[in-house]
Design a protein around this nucleic acid. Structure first.
Lengths: 142, 142
DNA sequence: ATCTACATTATAATAATTCTAAACTATTGA
DNA sequence: TCAATAGTTTAGAATTATTATAATGTAGAT
């Protein structure tokens, strides 16, 4: 979903009813210059800030999962006790800032193509993801 | 900790009291040919199978974290709602079988060295990890 | 043997997420 | 247009993984 598009139409196209909650979530998620990385908690906060009527937590979960299933959000594994999502659903890698807990996209020029020599019989590769953890230079090494 | 070593001595060396719970956990974790990948739940099950007296859940958590802090276990980020640990603490990459939820170590020859061109100012790289998700060849693509 | 600091334990607390079932609403088609 | 219905939202309960608490137990030193 590119920015400033008609979210009502887009939602209908992919078979999701354009409820006001979903349209609002589209605006918050996709009306941006850059891709957006967030946890459910981040999103709930953002939504409650930008709305007069709040969206229930269950709906935020439902909708995030619905968007993920349709391929408009991607879950990123970083932390074992919180889910991070990314509005950039293309295959790409990440930096994770361990000080601020921020995710940063890598673009293609940042990391050479990963060459995998091993083959697991009967299995196909679904995805290859690199996570580069970074932290402040001038503090005790993790 | 290599296999068949004296865990009591090893524990003392790194400043951990060799309690019977810790020694038992060492045996279960490190008396193996291959490296071991597990969730806390896997480990609790294994321990209760192999012991007459069961180790409490809190102790399993405490001990796993103690071993991790000492550098004898490494946490792997795969799944956002469960922690996976690895007895292989060297820098290495993984395959994750999405059918069986099994982790498989990559060795150095499996994946070329990752070359990172991007630099985040004021930050140093703590780790670089590749996760290759695989799944059965003959089923609906994820 | 006794002391003390560290460990273990059961249980309570917390946090993230999912489930449930009732109320609500977008769409369909009479 | 409006009722039927299928999909959605919601609050709150339930679940799951994990951490905290505080009482009891134990290893190692004196």
């Amino acid at each position: 979903m590119s920015k400033n598009c008609n979210f009502i139409e887009k939602l209908r196209e992919v078979g999701l009813r354009p409820t006001k909650q979903r349209v609002k979530m589209c605006e918050v998620l996709y009306n941006r210059e850059k891709t957006f990385h967030f946890t459910i908690n981040d999103l709930v906060k953002l939504l409650s800030e930008r709305m007069n009527q709040k969206i229930s937590l269950a709906t935020v979960y439902n909708t995030v999962h619905a968007f993920e299933k349709k391929g408009y959000l991607k879950e990123i594994s970083i932390d074992s006790h919180k889910s991070y999502f990314d509005t950039n659903t293309s295959a790409h890698h990440h930096f994770f800032d361990e000080d601020t807990h921020e995710l940063i996209d890598c673009d293609e020029s940042d990391i050479d193509k990963i060459n995998i020599r091993k083959n697991i019989s009967g299995k196909k590769i679904n995805s290859v993801e690199v996570l580069v953890r970074v932290a402040s230079d001038n503090q005790t090494q993790k």
